[in-house]
């Protein structure tokens, strides 16, 4: 029996036991590679027909990266709570348990739509979506920050100084000279904003992690870097140049910062402090540099030895030039 067939049987048993009415699963296939989190798609077949579902999963064998993703059980809990606040989210059907023997993960509805940013930014069918997304992003971010996540034990608490410390530790471990990053750490430490009450931070809130239809955002996905943190952090990350994919508009290539902030404030968010979002935009560029370098570690250690991982290392210069554009 092939590996995928064996896994399909294990998953089928778990699905049939736990999602009511499902009799079997069909057409299991993996959608994306990269990193420690897998995404699979399959059809759940019941008497009334078949329904397309998504499995987000971490295999048991994965060892920890230096960059720790939250457990998928926590991700599932956050999606459930975010959906209750009105954040566009897929419905969760089941969270895998150890007895299922299928790794850890959760099963959600498949949501039809586009995540490939170049198509979202250029295709005619997304013209209306492009006009609406800035407003929808501001609205979704305000709702994310309304989620009470303070009682979730495994959710990291990372305010600005903790973020800097954590990244600096990883950076020091490389023992490599990156003068632009070095200068950035100096700048960040000198410009830490005063502490505000921490809120739920998505951690990867950006064009590319929204499932988009012609009418706009259908779901906010990929919560693996979520934590409790500064309310301006997601603003900074979503506005870094790399997420504009060559388009001019500062927020994800979609629109202006002011319109994004206005939508957030209209949905109940506190007035946005521009100095604070600038700090997090600088931090966001640093984070992109760190993530690019992390892919090289994954390549070196064989966690994911694909050519794509090696290649992404050579995208680190994007973050470096953006940092200089912001800081000089």
């Amino acid at each position: 029996m092939t590996k995928i067939n064996a896994f399909s049987q294990t998953l089928e048993a778990a699905v049939c036991r736990n999602i009511s009415g499902v009799q079997k699963i069909k057409g299991l296939h993996r959608l994306s590679g990269g990193g420690s989190q897998e995404t699979w798609c399959f059809d759940a077949v019941s008497a009334s027909g078949k329904k397309k579902l998504i499995l987000r999963r971490t295999p048991e064998s994965v060892s920890g990266d230096t960059w720790v993703s939250i457990p998928l059980e926590v991700e599932a809990e956050l999606i459930t709570r975010a959906a209750k606040e009105g954040v566009p989210s897929p419905a969760i059907h089941y969270v895998l348990a150890p007895k299922d023997g299928a790794g850890s993960g959760f099963i959600v509805d498949f949501i039809e739509g586009e995540t490939f940013v170049r198509r979202i930014l250029r295709d005619d069918q997304y013209a209306t979506a492009r006009e609406k997304m800035i407003g929808q992003m501001g609205d979704a971010l305000a709702r994310i920050q309304k989620v009470d996540a303070t009682n979730i034990a495994d959710l990291p608490v990372l305010d600005a100084s903790a973020q800097i410390t954590r990244n600096k530790e990883i950076y020091r471990e490389w023992d490599e000279a990156h003068p632009v990053l070095e200068a950035t750490f100096v700048w960040l430490e000198a410009n830490i904003p005063e502490i505000k009450p921490l809120v739920l931070v998505h951690g990867d809130f950006r064009n590319g992690n929204f499932i988009v239809g012609p009418e706009g955002i259908r779901a906010v996905i990929d919560w693996e870097l979520a934590h409790l943190g500064d309310p301006a952090e997601d603003f900074g990350w979503t506005s870094i140049n790399v997420w504009r994919f060559g388009a001019d508009k500062p927020v994800g290539g979609l629109g202006e910062r002011e319109d994004f902030y206005a939508a957030y404030e209209a949905a109940g968010g506190a007035p946005v402090d521009h100095t604070r979002t600038h700090f997090w935009e600088v931090f966001g560029c640093l984070k992109w540099a760190m993530l690019c370098r992390l892919m090289v570690t994954r390549y070196e250690t064989g966690t994911d030895a694909g050519v794509e991982m090696a290649y992404i290392g050579r995208r680190m210069c994007e973050a470096e030039i953006d940092l200089l554009n912001l800081l000089t």
């Binding site: 200068a183 210069c317 030039i321 200089l324």
Partner: peptide, 30 residues
């Protein structure tokens, strides 16, 4: 970074890196 020579050096060095690694990246144009 406020030292003009350091600043100019980091900008030139990084532009050169981008020209090799990602010459179409918008940040280079900026």
């Amino acid at each position: 970074l406020d030292d003009p020579k350091v600043k100019a050096h980091l900008i030139e060095t990084t532009k050169a890196k981008v020209q090799i690694d990602q010459p179409k990246y918008s940040g280079l144009r900026h």
